[in-house]
Design a binder for these strands. Structure first.
Lengths: 155, 155
DNA sequence: AACAAATCCTACCTCAGAGGTCGGAAAGCG
DNA sequence: CGCTTTCCGACCTCTGAGGTAGGATTTGTT
């Protein structure tokens, strides 16, 4: 499993917010009804999204959450990173400021960690897939097919 | 973390086997010396690789493991899948024989799971990265730089 | 002011799986 | 035979995922 349900639930939450207009806030209880997710758990997830500046909250009666930006300007890399933390394919993976990547067990005089090359490629693939998809894409996808199963075609 | 150390250790094992000639088998103890990995744990991992038909074993004294095929013909998707199991980005992800993907919570009359589109893309990215890399690539990479750190550049 | 609806926050619980160890059986050398 | 190595299953520990509970705080409505 590449990602946990945190990403799953969180993304569904974001899509749900995108489906509602961004005029008035949506309460979590509304989301849990539509998506059948545990409310108290969602609270934790949405907190991460809020801290990441992806959603805004309004407290009190008739409060709730709304997107901090239009869905077109939210790419899913941000969302997933906010929920899951940094996307490192592997424990021994420490990208530094520039594009370099250092590997934990490279320190000892070993021949360099060959797997680094592989994980770098994988990470590139994931990052590209996530970064190239906006929330608006998902919302549109969800709107389009309300119920009927469809072939999932996307690279 | 996208993958666990199973993939890490297993890939390093495969690279190590690739570095040695495929003429005579390499004992696990040799690998653990070079890579500083726990032997008893490696035993479990190599068992998976053997069952997947990626390595062959020779028992008894002077026994060990060798690649079942030349490194050029082993792509890393096979290797990682053998070690980690099927590469599904998400729990709710059940690809069927044809390219379709069905989603667990699609069953209840909900509007279709929008995240499906996202996970499909992510999986595509990972699969492409892994499938497009052969063991020979990694072996070459490891041979090339024996010690000195290098910029990791690969998409 | 009182109430209700909502977010916010901290602490806690449970369980599966990662990561690893151990002991021994079987197989193939010399 | 004895040594080396793969093979196999049982076991152990600890972390994090996934979720629950309870209350504090904010804000709209009556």
């Amino acid at each position: 499993m590449l990602f946990s349900t945190r990403a799953e639930y969180g993304v569904r939450l974001m899509v749900e917010l995108g489906r509602q207009g961004d005029t008035e806030p949506v309460a979590l209880s509304t989301v849990t009804e539509n998506e059948h997710l545990p409310l108290s758990y969602l609270e934790h997830l949405v907190a991460k999204l809020r801290k990441a500046g992806l959603v805004e909250s309004q407290r009190g009666a008739h409060g709730g959450y709304r997107l901090a930006r239009p869905a077109e300007e939210i790419d899913m890399l941000e969302v997933v990173q906010a929920l899951e933390g940094a996307i490192a394919p592997m424990e021994c993976f420490h990208p530094d400021p520039e594009g370099k990547v250092s590997c934990s067990h490279e320190a000892d005089g070993d021949h360099a960690c060959a797997t680094k090359m592989l994980w770098t490629r994988v990470q590139g693939g994931v990052t590209k897939a996530l970064g190239g998809t906006t929330l608006a894409d998902l919302v549109e996808f969800a709107e389009g097919q309300t119920g009927k199963p469809v072939v999932a075609g996307a690279a």
